[in-house]
Design a binder for these strands. Structure first.
Length: 508
RNA sequence: GGCCCGUUCGUCUAGUCGGUUAGGACGCCAGGUUUUCAUCCUGGAAAUCAGGGGUUCGAGUCCCCUACGGGCUACCA
């Protein structure tokens, strides 16, 4: 049997996937593809109370947008279907029963309320309650009550959970691909619930059973899972699957840009950057959270940026296509410490990718904006604008902000520019210039350039007297690309028209 | 509180076998280009490698302690 590399991304559908989750999916994907392995999407929906409609679709759509393709999963099926844990419900019970049979687990009848009360008592006594070897014999479970009574309770329909029986003094070793060997004392673990009273397994049981059944070779997940890794190791052992136990790799967390702590939805709202790949509208509150896609990020840029948050190739190259990333990715080069997310660098990545796009691509994106503005111009015209503008922008959306003057004449003029540059003879200069332009037969940037120079020397006018005025009348303010280029694109008629209306407005 | 993980410029990081002027990128600042703004180019400031002890001829790199930060501590994942 060949040990094929198989990894899974296993989110729970409790809301939109945030960028930390996307990064986890990305690293799983890169690792799988680098090693000719399979990448699987499994939905961990064992908590029915936290289920959010549409979250699953959101997850699928997000990863599709990112270009991460699954080999198996809820949405595409596969040889280990079903991939939704709620649909695998029947599978888990027998493994829980097996553990009980072997004495590795037991039934517990304490209600949540009872445990809560005990917890509070401990708290007021300044200690913490654990359901473990010290306390389990004082609680209501199959270790403390007679076998037939247990049977009777269950048969009468009394609610119960199944808990793992953690051994007393054992060292449990977790071998982590990123952190090395991590040792835990079993005494600090508690008898975690494996099987809930609603008939569903908890994450701990379900993920171990599924990873085994789905032949997962590597579990690459967030660092928040490291503390429960020894529990999972124990489960593999008790289930008799220690030899098939996957390799673990616990990824460092994504931290908020300022201060400390895990990156959260709130940080995005607070600091004005998206925390989610796609826009998300909360089905209950209708609250809108912005997404990278809607903010104008290219998926390649987004992925490139995320890949570098916690991983680097060890070279000075920073721009990596998804294919490049697959080639270069290794778990060994994933860092150990959490990374603060930097929204500024995210913009820089998008700027880099915009430079790589050709004008046709940019124009077709920009034309969507123009249609919304009810502007109809030729695609060639839009392309010419994109060629000129692309190096000046980070996002396609900035095209309208910075280049709307290519499509609509300015209606107001920057007062500071007028104050600085508008002189008594300005109207005269502009009129002369437009007369010259009007006579021009070859209308391209070189001809315009040479004619401007000839015009200036012939009329003894300095460049500084003319150019700012042209910019004022064509753009309305002192921004934008080279004025000759603007004239070339806008065209003779429009330039003359704008000069005239500028004079008309300012000369008053 | 307990357990676990982490700690190199403001930020992302290189540094994997101990010997480097501790390198790059983002951002920032300055100069140049553009008679504009931005881009771009060049340069600069920026880490006493969290602190303290060891080991060693020599430590960011190995060991120990401390501090700080983070994660976990549910019939949530």
């Amino acid at each position: 049997m060949t040990n094929k590399i198989r990894v899974r991304f296993a989110p729970s559908p409790t809301g939109p996937l945030h960028i930390g989750g996307v990064r986890t999916a990305l690293y799983n994907y890169l690792f799988a593809k680098k090693n000719n392995g399979d990448f699987i999407l499994r939905i961990e929906d064992t908590d029915q109370t936290r289920f959010v409609p549409d979250a699953e679709n959101y997850i699928i759509e997000s990863l599709e947008w990112c270009g991460l393709k699954f080999d198996e999963g809820v949405h595409i099926g596969g040889s280990h279907a079903p991939y939704r844990q709620s649909e695998r419900k029947e599978i888990y019970k027998k493994y829980a029963d097996f553990l009980i049979e072997k004495g590795y687990a037991y039934y517990a009848f304490d209600t949540s309320e009872q445990l809560e009360t005990i917890r509070k008592q401990y708290e007021s006594g300044k200690s913490t309650f654990f359901y473990n070897s010290e306390t389990r014999l004082k609680l209501i479970n199959s270790l403390t009550i007679a076998e037939d009574e247990v049977k009777q309770k269950i048969e009468s329909g009394e609610k119960y959970v199944i808990r793992i029986k953690i051994p007393e003094n054992e060292q449990i070793i977790v071998n982590d691909q990123i952190r090395g060997t991590v040792v835990f004392e079993s005494s600090i673990l508690d008898d975690k619930v494996l099987f809930k009273s609603d008939g569903m397994p908890t994450y701990h049981l379900a993920n171990v059973v599924d990873d085994y059944l789905m032949k997962i070779s590597h579990v690459i997940r967030g660092e928040e899972w490291l503390p429960s890794a020894p529990l999972h190791v124990l489960l593999y052992r008790y289930l008799g699957w220690e030899k098939e136990m996957p390799q673990f790799a616990h990824l460092p967390l994504l931290l908020k840009p300022d201060g400390n702590g895990k990156l959260s939805k709130r940080d995005g709202d607070r600091l004005g950057f998206p925390v989610f790949p796609l826009q998300w509208i909360d089905p209950f509150s209708k609250e809108i959270s912005s997404g990278y896609r809607e903010s104008g990020y290219f998926p390649e840029a987004f992925i490139n940026m995320l890949a570098f948050l916690g991983w680097n190739p060890g070279t000075e190259q920073e721009i990596f296509s998804l294919e490049d990333l697959i080639q270069s990715f290794t778990i060994e080069r994933v860092g150990k410490s959490g990374s603060k997310f930097d929204p500024e660098k995210a913009k820089w990545f998008n700027h880099q990718y915009i430079q790589k796009k050709d004008e046709k691509t940019l124009a077709s994106l920009f034309s969507l904006v123009l249609i919304e503005k009810n502007i109809s111009v030729s695609l060639g015209y839009i392309e010419a604008v994109c060629v000129l503008m692309k190096e000046r922008i980070n996002f396609v959306s900035e095209l309208w902000e910075k280049a709307s003057f290519f499509f609509i004449a300015p209606t107001s003029y920057d007062s500071k520019l007028i104050k600085d540059k508008w002189k008594d003879n300005s109207s005269q200069i502009l009129i002369l210039f437009s007369e010259m332009l009007n006579k021009l037969e070859t209308f391209n940037s070189t001809s315009i350039d040479t004619n401007i120079n000839e015009f200036l020397t012939a009329n003894q006018i300095g460049k500084g007297q003319l150019m700012p005025l042209l910019r004022l009348s064509l753009v309305g303010n002192s921004t934008g690309p080279d004025i000759t280029q603007i004239i070339t694109i806008i065209g003779k008629k429009e330039v003359i028209k704008r000069i005239n209306s500028c004079i008309a407005i300012i000369a008053n």
